[in-house]
Amino acid sequence: MQMNVKYTSLVAVGDSFTEGMSDRLPDGSYRGWADLLAGRMAARDPGFRYANLAVRGKLIGQIVDEQVDVAAAMRADVVTLVGGLNDTLRPKCDMGRVRGLLTEAVERLAPSCEQLVLMRSPGRNGPVMERFRPRMEELFTCIDELAERHGAVVVDLYGAPVLGEQRMWDVDRLHLTAEGHERVAEAVWQALGYPPESDWRAPLAAAARPNWAARRVADARFAKQHLVPWIGRRLTGRSSGDGLAPKRGELAPYGEASAPSDS
């Protein structure tokens, strides 16, 4: 592992996972693993620059159309690309199209940066995960092949059992908790060659399983607050990210707020 690695800029591309949901700050905004990673990288370089183009709800086609060329033009040292998982969760998903678009994204981004980072995304253990696991693993096979072809680093979050545990996921069952985001930041940090600061794969401490009544209350809350609205958006062709701009649309010094993008 490299111990003298030095990167001076980072651009994050993707959907809600990279935007930082559900790692909510006191002011209501989202932090997430990419912001955490950028902060740690910036601590080593006062002039470090960071952009986060990710927007919740984006499909891989939207990521390619709205984010990839913008990111490539920034010529950052490091670009992270996480996308395609939202597509696999749709009832009708053309995996051939998803693979093609992901390939297009990698082919545009890899030459534009010193190091491209791809991920095998984590998934919450449960019946939903089992239903879509074949599609996810097909996506991850494509990611592995693209990484080998283009010299990208792959962070295997899917292969870490702890990130599948239900306690690592927010009440919406789609996004990691703050601790989950912290572990992802450490995983990417290590993949980039920085010295380990913690064991991101370490299992959680043992805890009592919620009783039947508590689980039913949680199920009802999830259905009302998250599942029904999600179904409604799918039926009407809407997305949770409609009209939202990236939180850091420009590659700017880490300590400075980036002006919202017009996209």
Rank of each mutant, 00 (worst) to 15 (best):
236 T>A: 06
45 D>S: 13
255 G>A: 12
181 H>W: 07
120 R>F: 10
179 E>R: 07
32 G>A: 04
78 V>F: 00
147 A>C: 13
42 A>V: 10
126 G>T: 12
227 L>H: 12
119 M>H: 05
35 D>C: 04
4 N>E: 09
220 A>N: 08
4 N>G: 07
248 R>F: 11
29 S>W: 12
224 K>S: 13
57 G>Y: 07
78 V>M: 01
166 Q>T: 10
251 L>N: 04
77 D>W: 08
195 P>E: 06
57 G>N: 06
48 F>M: 09
189 W>H: 00
81 L>P: 04
209 R>S: 08
239 S>Q: 11
100 G>R: 04
141 T>G: 14
251 L>Y: 04
120 R>M: 10
180 G>Y: 04
173 R>N: 11
262 D>T: 15
148 E>A: 15
77 D>I: 05
123 G>C: 07
151 G>H: 08
90 R>N: 00
242 D>R: 10
218 A>T: 10
84 G>I: 09
48 F>Q: 09
12 A>F: 06
73 A>M: 13
101 L>T: 06
116 L>H: 01
222 F>Q: 08
109 L>I: 13
99 R>A: 15
254 Y>D: 03
42 A>Q: 09
121 S>T: 15
257 A>R: 02
114 E>T: 15
139 L>G: 05
109 L>K: 07
185 A>Q: 03
95 M>C: 10
200 W>K: 00
235 L>S: 11
32 G>W: 00
6 K>W: 02
115 Q>D: 06
166 Q>E: 14
143 I>L: 11
68 V>F: 13
42 A>S: 12
150 H>R: 14
116 L>R: 02
225 Q>K: 12
166 Q>K: 11
172 D>W: 12
114 E>Q: 13
185 A>C: 12
67 Q>C: 08
190 Q>Y: 08
251 L>S: 03
263 S>C: 02
241 G>Q: 00
151 G>T: 03
9 S>R: 01
222 F>M: 07
149 R>P: 08
80 T>N: 01
130 E>L: 15
180 G>V: 02
110 A>G: 05
214 A>G: 08
34 A>K: 01
94 D>G: 10
67 Q>K: 09
12 A>Y: 07
200 W>E: 00
89 L>G: 01
178 A>V: 14
139 L>E: 03
75 R>Q: 15
95 M>D: 07
2 Q>S: 14
259 A>C: 05
221 R>C: 03
67 Q>N: 13
242 D>C: 07
186 E>Y: 01
117 V>G: 02
3 M>A: 02
14 G>L: 03
216 R>K: 12
110 A>H: 04
166 Q>D: 11
198 S>E: 14
132 F>I: 15
224 K>F: 13
75 R>I: 11
140 F>Y: 13
103 T>G: 15
189 W>G: 04
254 Y>L: 05
238 R>C: 09
140 F>A: 03
92 K>S: 15
170 D>H: 15
68 V>A: 05
50 Y>D: 04
107 E>L: 13
31 R>S: 14
174 L>H: 11
45 D>V: 08
107 E>R: 14
162 V>N: 05
47 G>V: 12
